[in-house]
């Protein structure tokens, strides 16, 4: 029983990170109908901003950790908005395929520019938050897990409030449902799209910091695998659906952790993707997605 709870806890904290990244994929898909492959590299940049900022604050303090987190989120929000402005906006009226290929290009650009600036060798991520272990019976909860879960929950609640309670959030949903009609309401769609990239990238940065806290070896290609998993999570939950991305992330993280802890641990990635295929066979639009025919 305690092993089950321990694994569940580990799984949920990994899943929360996937969820944070998945939200960015799903929001951008919502407003632009394409997969921003560079998103996983924004996640990586978030971790590196954390690495360098971590040197400026005293190690192992809560306020220092939060300051690093905030700096990474702001930095990546700006990066995401810049990517959108320079790479995607000029292609607004181009076919989706062109934008997808551009996204892959931006992804490679970030990865290999990262290798030029940060070097290809892995670096040790500093312990920016205080580290302590709590035990609850036989279940050990690390302070990092608590931080991951608390930060993710807070960010998801804030996101929910932005999307459902603010004017810009309503505009985001309106653009996602019908961009032409949104323009006719006086919405400047470019501003809304830019905002969406900023928001998604900030969440990816938070994901990058939290991921690096738990797997403290970072390198310029670190985004590839978690990015792919988060992308799967977004599809699993129903791409374009915000609660779906969060749910997909949690499911994927939990399953992966349970498989890692079993005798099939070498197959953990294969099993994660097999689950995606099986779920999509039965629910082609994802768990919370609505099946719609793409209009041509």
């Amino acid at each position: 029983m305690s092993e089950f709870l321990q694994q569940l806890l580990n799984g949920l904290s990994l899943g929360a990170i996937y969820a944070l990244i998945a939200l960015g994929y799903t929001m951008v898909y919502g407003v632009l109908r394409f997969i921003n492959f560079a998103h996983s590299d924004v996640f990586m940049v978030g971790a590196f901003i954390g690495y360098y900022m971590g040197k400026l604050v005293p190690e192992g303090t809560l306020w220092g950790g939060l300051a690093v987190l905030g700096a990474a989120m702001i930095g990546c929000a700006l990066l995401g908005m810049t990517i959108e402005r320079l790479a995607y906006r000029p292609l607004r009226s181009a076919p989706t395929l062109n934008v997808l290929i551009t996204a892959i290009g931006v992804s490679l650009l970030l990865e290999y520019t990262g290798q030029v600036f940060f070097g290809a060798a892995p670096r040790n991520f500093p312990a920016i938050f205080p580290v302590r272990n709590f035990s609850l019976g036989n279940v050990i909860i690390s302070s990092n897990q608590v931080i991951v879960i608390v930060v993710s929950v807070v960010l998801m609640v804030v996101l929910q409030l932005i999307v459902y309670r603010t004017k810009i959030g309503t505009a985001m949903r309106a653009v996602s449902l019908n961009p032409k009609a949104a323009i006719l309401m006086g919405v400047n769609n470019d501003v809304v799209i830019s905002f969406t990239f900023g928001l998604g990238s900030a969440l990816a940065a938070a994901g990058g910091i939290l991921y690096a806290l738990n797997y403290p070896s970072i390198d310029p290609l670190m985004g590839v695998m978690p990015g792919l998993k988060a992308f799967v999570a977004a599809i699993l939950g129903g791409i374009g659906n915000i609660p779906g991305a969060a749910l997909g992330g949690l499911i994927l993280g939990t399953v992966e952790t349970f498989v890692s802890g079993s005798q099939f641990s070498t197959y953990k990635d294969a099993i994660a993707f097999a689950i995606l295929i099986i779920i999509l066979l039965f629910r082609p639009a994802g768990l919370l997605g609505k099946f719609t025919v793409e209009k041509v």
Binding site: T170, L177, I183
Partner: peptide, 29 residues
Amino acid sequence: VARGLSHVPEGRMIFSNLTVDENLAMGAY
């Protein structure tokens, strides 16, 4: 739109997954 010229498009183009209230709020964006 900001000049006071409003267009009710063909096929209505309401925001189907937004509530009536939210649709009206979008009109007053």
